[in-house]
């Protein structure tokens, strides 16, 4: 019996010391990590904006799936409203307005939004889905849109950032976070894969597929934009290299067909849903008495 207690106590002390150390390191590093992630996101978005025309601001829209006790599931949007502040627009899955609630707290990161939403809608459970970020110029004109979402990869979630032009065509794809296998699925980070999405229009995306064909060498050289300068390729030549292939299906990464397919499906799903949802939000927000700031 005494032995049993000593063993339990021994393991308890080890776990406590370990937990204290982890807690200490976590509290010291978590905010810095969040800031790093935010900085990286902004740097990623900056790459798709015209450097000569600085955007006046970003409008951030966060989509939530809402579970309300005893009621049907609903979709909720955290929207910035004119004159500062945010509001929560609750819609049925078919796009009928359920309610519009002004939010009184900060909504910058996920934890803050959870707390603010819990105060505004007591009793409901909000599940974060994705975020839309609109880059607006001084006159409120949309310069670009960014979809921050995720898709299933080969093993776990792949977090994506899709940049869209004002006309809804894809400007580029960034992989924010993933845990695919190095050398295989992790190649989704590479330009020769990501940049295959640039320039796809909405109509093209609807029918976009993935082919298991070797990537033509000149196409690869055209896609690897960061190496254009080193290889003596001018931007015009680079675009010309991509032109013959730019409307074909996505060439899968060799040895990582599943990762390639999942990312392609994810981009298609995120973009097509974004276009549809933005239409719904824009038409219903005013009907619900909101003045969205975008």
């Amino acid at each position: 019996m005494k032995e049993f207690l000593r063993i339990a106590l021994n393991l308890l002390v080890i776990s406590l010391v370990s937990a204290a150390l982890l807690g200490l390191v976590f509290t010291r590093t978590e905010n810095i990590r969040k800031r790093n992630e935010q900085a990286r996101l902004e740097a990623s978005m900056g790459r798709y904006l015209d450097p000569t025309a600085d955007p006046a601001h970003y409008a951030r829209i966060h989509r939530y799936l809402m579970e309300r006790p005893g009621q049907a599931a609903a979709v909720g949007y955290v929207l910035p409203v004119r004159g500062g502040g945010n509001a929560f627009l609750l819609l049925t899955p078919d796009g009928e307005v359920l309610s519009a609630t002004p939010l009184d707290g900060p909504v910058d990161d996920e934890a803050e939004r959870d707390a603010t939403l819990a105060r505004a809608l007591p009793g409901a459970a909000a599940h974060y889905a994705d975020s839309y970020i609109l880059a607006l110029d001084a006159s409120g004109h949309r310069m670009a849109s960014f979809i921050q979402g995720r898709t299933g990869g080969f093993k776990t979630w792949v977090h994506l950032l899709v940049a869209l032009g004002p006309d809804g065509s894809v400007k580029g794809l960034e992989i924010l976070r993933h845990e695919e296998d190095p050398g295989l699925g992790a190649e989704i980070e590479q330009e020769y894969f990501r940049n295959q999405f640039a320039g796809r229009t909405l109509d093209e995306l609807r029918t976009l597929g993935v082919v298991r064909l070797p990537l033509p060498e000149d196409y690869r050289r055209g896609l690897e934009r960061s190496r254009w300068a080193a290889r003596g390729i001018t931007p015009e030549q680079g675009r010309a290299l991509c032109a013959p292939y730019g409307h074909e299906d996505i060439h899968a990464i060799t040895g990582a067909t599943i990762s390639s397919r999942r990312v392609t499906e994810g981009v298609k799903r995120l973009v097509l849903a974004f276009v549809k949802r933005m239409e719904t939000v824009e038409s219903t927000a005013r009907a619900a008495g909101l003045e969205p700031a975008f």
Binding site: N10, S15, L21, L22
Partner: peptide, 28 residues
Amino acid sequence: IHERIRIPAYIIIIATWVSVSDMTLAAY
């Protein structure tokens, strides 16, 4: 570290170091 629970103790120690280095690298 008690002889009978050395394996779980080792796993905790390894996991702690892995998590500490993971968080530290992510921040700095």
